[in-house]
Structure formats: structure tokens, C-alpha cells
Amino acid sequence: MHLDTLARLNAERAARRATVLVTDTGDGTQRLVTEAEIDRDPLADTLRKALAAGRSGLVEADERQIFLTVQAPPVRLVVIGAVHIAQALAPMARAVDLAVTVIDPRTAFATPERFPEIDLVPEWPDAVLGNRVPALDRYCAVAALSHDPKIDDPALKAALGAGCLYVGALGSRKTHAARVERLTQAGFPPEDIARIRAPIGLDIAAVSPAEIAVAILAEIVSTLRRPRQDR
């Protein structure tokens, strides 16, 4: 591989743009295809499928073995609510290589003491998303845990608008029904609202905050790793 190709690949990844590196395993020739360039590529259909699945893999083209290195941007987890569950979730999420940010305007909750070494933002979500915290994108997971609609709702709206890969919200079915009502009033179509995982987390009968954090993280990982059609 040319150092230039590697540098471009790393730069695209740092800018959170998806790329596919196309390598002929027979002779080592390569090309880097950015998301914007896919339509013009001879293997356009194949590359689009690989990118949608988010998986690297070997394909046959013109009787040659071609390896596709799919580079989807690293996933960020934005947690809304510096609550007890968030205290357990943030370090666990970091252990599975998610970049974690916790946002909560309530300064009694959002203290460095409660969140050592975690990117903690004691501000309103709608005030910081897009500036102090990078804007949400498709490669973000959002977990709304504050239990306060004034804090959770703006983040959920931003998450649905950005097409985040995972959107979950804490609360009982009753709480969620009220949330659905508010989002409907705000003009969100039912299919968008249906993307919100609520009650949040896989059903593992979790009780303690740390167990609920496990359930949420497991749900995020399963959304990330399972092929889209199986979700």
C-alpha cells in the first residue's frame, strides 16, 4: 500500500467519513473509494452493499479475488443524563471502544467526581450538540437516561433527525407513550419514532443500575453488529 493511500484512509476516518479500500489480493493493486465516489466505481453495487453491512470481506470480480476493507467511522455514544445508570454505562462503553460523552445540565449530577475520566458536559443537549459536542451523525448511539423530557426530548429529536444508528430512551411504557405523543405533536413521523428503543436495553431482567447498563450496552452492540435486515 502506498503511504499516501494509508494517509488518505486515516484522514477520511478521522473526519468520520466512510471509505472502502479495494485491494486485488492477486497483484496487490489498490484504490481507496470514498462514500461520495462509490457511484462512479466499477464495483459500485458491491461496494454499496459492503458499506451498508459495515463489513470487510472478500469478493470475486472478473475472476479476481478482491478484498474490501470497509472503514465505517468509529461509533460515538452520547448519554443524556448523568444519572446512576450512566455512571456504570460510561466506563463499560469505553471498554468496548465507544467514544463516550455524557451530557446533563444539572450540575449536581454532572460532576467529575461521579464521572472520573469521562467526557462530561454540564450543559443542555440542544445547546452543545453541534458545537462543544460534535453534531450527531449516523455513526452515533444516543441513550436518553435523564427521565426529564426537558433534557431528553431535544436530544432524541436531534438523534432521530441525524439518523443515529441507535436511539434508546429510559422510562416505563407509560412514560414512553407520553413521549411518543410529544414527538408526534412535534411532527415526527411514526416510522422515525418507532426507531426509539423503549423500554431501553435488551430484556435480561436487569435490576441494578449496572445491570441496566449491561442491557443497554448489549442492545447497542447488537444494533451495531447484526446485519441490518435481521434487526
Partner: peptide, 21 residues
């Protein structure tokens, strides 16, 4: 991949191994 790039920039040689199948 970032390590591979920075090694080359420091003048170190680098070979990249990738699991393809």
C-alpha cells in the same frame, strides 16, 4: 492503521497484515 502511518512517517518500515477470509 494510525500506528502504521506514524511508523512510516518516523522512517520505520511497516508491513500491514489483514485477515481476508
Amino acid at each position: 492503521l494510525a500506528a502504521a502511518e506514524s511508523w512510516r512517517r518516523e522512517g520505520r518500515q511497516a508491513v500491514l497484515a489483514t485477515v481476508i477470509e
